[in-house]
């Protein structure tokens, strides 16, 4: 386990204009190179926290530090994968993947080349000139992931990336994601409301309690992700983690 935290939140609080308090005094360390999951029932502010870390929403209290420096907006070391994919409907898959590089002024040939490679990595070679509407939900999210990988950020923030994807596609995608991310030493912060998904994917699971969102527990299941995916799903430690999380979350579900 790596010791140093690449992302730290210090006493982060957020109250929306209408007076709804989404987060209160959230302090978490996210270790470098690990996949951490923010898990909790709906309304626990997990997406808000992720967007604060991304620099998309300013917090009312506290601060977020990335690599030791306080952030005041989005930065090149962080890339975001959106729940609703957020693909430009009028742009080809290739341009969508290269979009982050396009915004940074990378020349056309260079960014297209990078985009092609990332597309191949997520298994979408041959779809370069398709449009997003021609793809299934799972394929769209692979494009979203390729776009995040293309800008070569150290930290990947994923906001319920599989919630609009059907169950079978989701499982396959989760397995591919693990392979892809382990391989590259990325730090991933992952928001989900699926207990199984959190237990299966994560090195660390941050459980959030709802209204306002506060850190309830931090678990480190230590399942050992180098194993075969099907083996993990039958692993004692995996099943115990799922059960433990459920016992904690049950009290928040009415």
């Amino acid at each position: 386990m790596a010791g140093d935290a690449i992302v730290e939140t210090r006493g982060v609080g957020k109250t929306y204009d209408g007076g709804v308090e989404a987060l209160r005094d959230v302090s978490i360390d996210f270790p470098r190179g690990q996949l951490s999951t923010l898990l909790g029932p709906s309304g626990c502010g997990k997406t808000t926290l992720l967007k604060i870390i991304a620099g998309l929403i300013p917090p009312n209290a506290g601060e977020v530090r990335v690599k030791g420096r306080k952030i005041d907006g989005p930065g090149p070391e962080r890339a975001f994968v959106f729940q609703d994919f957020a693909l430009l409907p009028w742009a080809t898959v290739l341009r969508n993947v290269a979009f982050g590089l396009e915004l940074r002024g990378v020349p056309r040939e260079v960014r297209d080349e990078t985009a092609r490679r990332r597309l191949a990595e997520v298994g979408l070679s041959g779809f370069e000139s398709s449009y997003p509407n021609q793809l299934s939900g799972g394929m769209k999210q692979r494009v979203g992931l390729a776009r995040a990988l293309a800008v070569d950020a150290d930290i990947i923030l994923m906001d319920e990336p599989f919630s609009s994807v059907d169950e079978q596609t989701r499982r396959k995608f989760q397995e591919d994601l693990l392979v892809l991310l382990r391989h590259r030493q990325k730090t991933v912060i992952f928001v989900t409301h699926s207990i199984e998904e959190a237990a299966y994917l994560s090195d660390r699971i941050v459980l959030l309690s709802p209204r306002p969102g506060t850190v309830s527990r931090v678990l480190t299941p230590d399942i050992g992700h180098d194993k075969d995916p099907d083996e993990i799903r039958r692993d004692r430690r995996y099943l115990d983690a799922v059960d433990e999380i459920w016992q904690i979350l049950k009290q928040y579900v009415t």
Binding site: P76, F80, L88, E102
Partner: peptide
């Protein structure tokens, strides 16, 4: 709003948000 947010997350400037997302 989600596309605008995406453009901001990938470091789009206000100008780029307008030219590459809002106007199209």
């Amino acid at each position: 709003p989600s596309l605008v947010e995406m453009c901001r997350a990938f470091l789009g400037t206000r100008r780029q948000v307008v030219a590459k997302v809002v106007l199209p």
